[in-house]
């Protein structure tokens, strides 16, 4: 106990209980998050089944190359995140700092690609209410229902947008960890903050793993479509 003095908040019996509670709390928060995304995934699935052909037509216009690259970027960021947790527990502050900065870097890279993609979507008139051409979809063979295509695109923006909001929160948390690492308060005895942020970061990655097939891989893509 004496070695942990100052570590344990007043209402806990010992450090084990405190660590236990901190991880448990984050797991429960993730349960809530699953239900947030679950609601919109369910709504999407309802229409995906009802208007299968039109959703596939809309999906084939999304940029699957950028979507795939971003998947790799995020998976790599999960690796550096896990290494950051390992570095904290092993007491290697330099490696911890490098891993945290790399994770942030990959997060920002994701946003860079995403911004390019959103811009392209705008250029290709894939933004309902802002820049969208219903006639183009009616002239296709087979023709697609422009209303249903817009429905799919609205989902695309809401789902990727909500994911992006979570990424921003995650990068904010990582920045806070960098600040703490600089001040040297992330010691092997105080590794829980990194662990808990790590749980959150992995969750946000996993959401993307579901978004990729739901949104991008629903339609057919030809090799000639693979471009920036």
């Amino acid at each position: 106990m004496s070695t942990n003095r100052g570590l344990v908040a007043h209402h806990f019996e010992d450090i084990e209980q405190q660590r236990d509670v901190e991880a448990f709390g984050m797991w429960m928060f993730l349960a809530t998050e699953i239900l947030i995304f679950g609601a919109v995934f369910t709504a999407y699935t309802v229409y995906r089944l009802r208007y299968a052909a039109d959703f596939e037509a809309a999906s084939s216009k999304l940029n699957v190359l950028i979507g795939s690259i971003n998947t790799i970027v995020l998976l790599t960021s999960s690796l550096t995140m896990v290494l950051a947790v390992h570095a904290t527990r092993a007491g290697r502050p330099k490696m911890l700092m490098i891993c945290l900065l790399l994770t942030i870097f990959f997060g920002l890279t994701f946003f860079g690609f995403k911004a390019v993609e959103y811009y392209e979507d705008y250029e290709e008139a894939l933004v309902p209410g802002l820049r969208f051409d219903p006639g183009e979809w009616a002239e296709r063979s087979p023709p697609a229902n422009a209303g249903h295509v817009q429905l799919m695109l609205v989902f695309y923006y809401i789902m990727t947008g909500l994911h992006a909001v979570h990424m921003i929160v995650g990068i904010g948390l990582l920045t806070w960890l960098v600040y703490r690492a600089r001040r040297g308060t992330l010691t092997p005895a105080r590794y829980m903050a990194v662990e808990v942020v790590g749980l959150y970061w992995h969750f946000v990655d996993i959401v993307w793993i579901f978004l990729l097939p739901l949104l991008y891989l629903a339609g057919t893509h030809r090799a000639s479509d693979l471009h920036f």
Binding site: Y47, P128, G129, G147, H148, Q150, L151, V154, F155, I158
Partner: peptide
Amino acid sequence: AWGIGIFDPDLGGD
């Protein structure tokens, strides 16, 4: 806010 959305019957929303 957007004027377009996923419960919108005009688009086939439910």
